[in-house]
Design a binder for these strands. Structure first.
Lengths: 205, 205
DNA sequence: GTAGACTTGTTACTAAAAGCACTAACAAAT
DNA sequence: ATTTGTTAGTGCTTTTAGTAACAAGTCTAC
């Protein structure tokens, strides 16, 4: 159904556009232009127009884009027109912060469960959750049909947890462990390692 | 002194190589090859060789790279042959998790101070730190000569905090606030927004 | 000492992404 | 009705990034 293949780099920018539109909308703006978005985001107006035109014609020449309408279209494209449940694996500092993170609200994302292997943590309260035993992970994920997981375990456990998650039917993984994990090509993977981001900048200092 | 301009995308991969080498080193490996690194990282061997050759000839034909030596060279290139002190602004969940984060150890990064504007948080203990008053931020940063900052404040305060940090002499910023912040071109900026990473993957589900 | 298997650094080539410029459409003011 | 300024969408050009192939150096086994 997707006629031409859209480059992943374009897909990567869409959430950025959506985030800006949400903010405009909450401020009461009803229309915007590629130029205004460009100024807001630090991306060229031509780039934004080209990206959006890959998916259809959402704007009106001379007028611009209707904020609500464009946001709605992006929601459909990104499949965030409904809430996605997620699991967190690892109830350490990072996992805990993510479990309490308010930034998923209003962005079609919701933490559903959190797992750990440490008997001292299992059963404990954490935010609105009770930490579950990692040995029940496959069953719980399958039962709920969850497709997205966040890994927040030590690096030496990350690959094993990944393999288990994939067995459970997880299709997208956000990895906070500071190590490269291997996944089959059909599994989506994104990594966050603050030290990596920081070391990328020290070169220029 | 830097003869040719190295693309930023190349700089971005160097910390990845360094991380892999650190791991190899801790496992006792003394030599490696572009092929082994490629397998470890999921990047092509040719790519790795080309990236490294931008900075010099670090390997030996037929043999490969000496792990310690290459790691050392990368440390020099990335200027992480000494520890960089950092400040965190915002002592909420994200800031707290970062203040306690163990992943900066052994990676030439160290949190030195944490600030907040909330009187209820100022003066409180947090990990090994006492949360400082944000109104003292400029003085404290200047006094210590700190160049790197992590922003972990709500989105509506992020731009103001950014401007203050730059006044204080900060040259590199890691932004956790879910909003685009504007900085002058000479300031390095990296952003981490987990929702953005996740929404990038939902498209494919 | 030599054959053969490895591995680097480099060059030539291919593919992808971004930038630019232009056309057509629309709105508002006169 | 006409003019002016604005803006989307698109094709073309330039730039950038990645891949593949190869010569030259190194090591090991015999």
């Amino acid at each position: 159904m997707q006629q031409k293949i859209i480059p992943d780099i374009v897909i990567g920018r869409l959430p950025l556009y959506y985030r800006a539109l949400q903010r405009m909308s909450s401020k009461g703006h009803t229309v915007t232009s590629s130029q205004e978005l460009a100024d807001t985001l630090g991306i060229s107006a031509a780039q934004i127009r080209k990206d959006l035109s890959q998916f259809g014609e959402f704007g009106k020449q001379g007028t611009g884009y209707n904020v609500e309408y464009l946001a709605d279209q992006l929601k459909k494209i990104l499949k965030i027109d409904h809430v996605w449940d997620m699991v967190i694996v690892g109830a350490g500092d990072v996992g805990s912060a993510l479990a309490r993170y308010q930034g998923f609200q209003d962005r079609s994302l919701r933490v559903k469960m959190i797992f750990d292997s440490d008997p001292l943590k299992i059963g404990k309260e954490l935010g609105n959750f009770i930490v579950k035993d990692i040995s029940t992970l496959i069953d719980e994920i399958k039962k709920e049909g969850i497709k997205i997981a966040i890994i927040a375990v030590p690096e030496n456990e990350a690959q094993e947890v990944t393999d288990t998650l994939i067995k459970a039917g997880i299709k997208a993984i956000l990895n906070y462990a500071p190590i490269h994990i291997a996944v089959p090509p059909e599994i989506r993977l994104q990594c966050i390692d603050p030290a990596l981001h920081l070391q990328r900048m020290t070169y220029y200092l």
